[in-house]
Design a protein around this nucleic acid. Structure first.
Lengths: 237, 237
DNA sequence: CAGATAACATGACATATATCACATTAATTA
DNA sequence: TAATTAATGTGATATATGTCATGTTATCTG
């Protein structure tokens, strides 16, 4: 299933440019290159499970990974979608806790695994890197506060509209017919992202389509009217 | 309004024992003592506003502070209640962002303000301290993930029951008639904590009382039946 | 390619919860 | 202590959304 291949060394890795590893020293990059593990993952595969111990950090070279929690009712709450340049599992590692969430592949991915010791070595030797990691954690915390507030104070319709806007921001590619959200998510996954039932997403999406806010192109969503979605999502008070 | 008084030096501060500052070196503690600012705050006063720039870190010596976001509908979503030994505002400071939330005093508080420079100095000079801060941030992130999942997947009744359990865990003092939650929160504040409307909290609380899960003693809540609340809060699948 | 499975869709229905309006009680302030 | 204001409580009502049932379509797998 999982394939281990020859991979680009970290020094030459392009997706690194946009990641927390962007400004490491040459020796540290070499150290990571020597110890990392490059693996190709197919859609649906599992990176790690909630409750298990983190043995290192995942660094996405390409593809999309969903990070989610399984609620007591069995539904998945997607915490975030991670893409090229994103790190996974470092919060649990640095928090010295078991994984607080699970991660599975949404779009075929190339991922480097950096073992715990290597990551911690770089972290302790490069204060500037540690500072950037801290900063990223703080930023994520602010995002989670926003998400919590939205979850409790906004309607599902508002949240779905907002989710579509966010997705188009991250995965949008311009086309003649509006912006295409270039990532395949099932309705169930969108529901997990918004925090609602699959049927509700289906209904609301076709409502949005009827209102000409979006359209469908195969399995992908076309955003036709960003302002309309922004209005719906209660962007401004 | 705000009173500046002589205060215990950090070296002798008792609430420090349970805080992130617990294991600092003597010189660093002295540095903090020299530069901190001890202020007594009364209920209702504001510590900082969302959107403003953090100039330092608040360290609670005594009292209770609510950290909240104001949603677009005007309601307050309480992110957390901070108590003795807790830090405030460090995430925004370290994230190099404006405050992502606001903070006001819920119970009269004694709070030390540590200016940005002093905090950053200690952070950069004491790697172990930096590691503990990082660890705390990671832990908070996990908590926020739980909260988000609960917010989207659980009912208000479940969340209220859970909130009461959490409050009794933190502020509970044993009495003959069950455990008293020794903190005064308005129904509106409980609503902000749960993420619901004030009226809903009022109704559910009297339902809980009718079902002999809780009772009221003045403005405070008595938890009579923890297991009952745990069952209601869907603690186990 | 057939059969199985997953994804999508739609209808019917129940209900938890938000909202609005108003009454009562408690707390604050002049 | 009267007068305001804040907090609590209750009733009526609307509705968004979850749930269940069922059907259709697409996708996967042997």
């Amino acid at each position: 299933m999982k394939t281990i291949e020859k991979s680009t060394p970290c020094e030459l890795c392009m997706s690194r440019k946009f990641s927390l590893f962007s400004n490491l020293t040459e020796p540290h990059l070499c150290h990571l290159s020597d110890h990392k593990n490059f693996i190709t993952h197919k859609k649906g595969q599992i990176l790690f499970y909630e409750g298990t111990k983190p043995l290192g950090v995942f660094c996405i070279n390409d593809g999309v990974v969903k990070v989610f929690k399984t609620a007591s009712n069995g539904k998945e709450q997607i915490i975030r979608l991670a893409k090229k340049g994103d790190f996974l599992g470092y919060a649990s590692l640095l928090g010295e806790e078991s994984y607080s969430n699970s991660a599975t592949i949404v779009e075929d991915a190339k991922i480097c695994f950096v073992p715990r010791e290597s990551f911690l070595k770089v972290l302790s030797e490069d204060t500037e890197f540690h500072r950037r990691v801290t900063k990223a954690l703080c930023h994520d915390l602010g995002i989670m506060e926003d998400k919590l507030t939205d979850a409790t104070q906004k309607s599902i319709r508002e949240r779905l509209a907002f989710t579509l806007l966010k997705l188009s921001e991250t995965y949008g590619i311009d086309g003649k017919e509006g912006e295409k959200i270039d990532i395949v998510l099932t309705r169930e996954e969108i529901a997990g992202l918004v925090g609602t039932a699959t049927e509700t997403v289906i209904r609301l999406l076709s409502e949005f389509k009827k209102d000409e806010l979006i359209d469908f192109e195969g399995k992908k969503i076309l955003v036709l009217d960003k302002r309309g979605l922004a209005r719906l999502s209660d962007f401004y008070g």
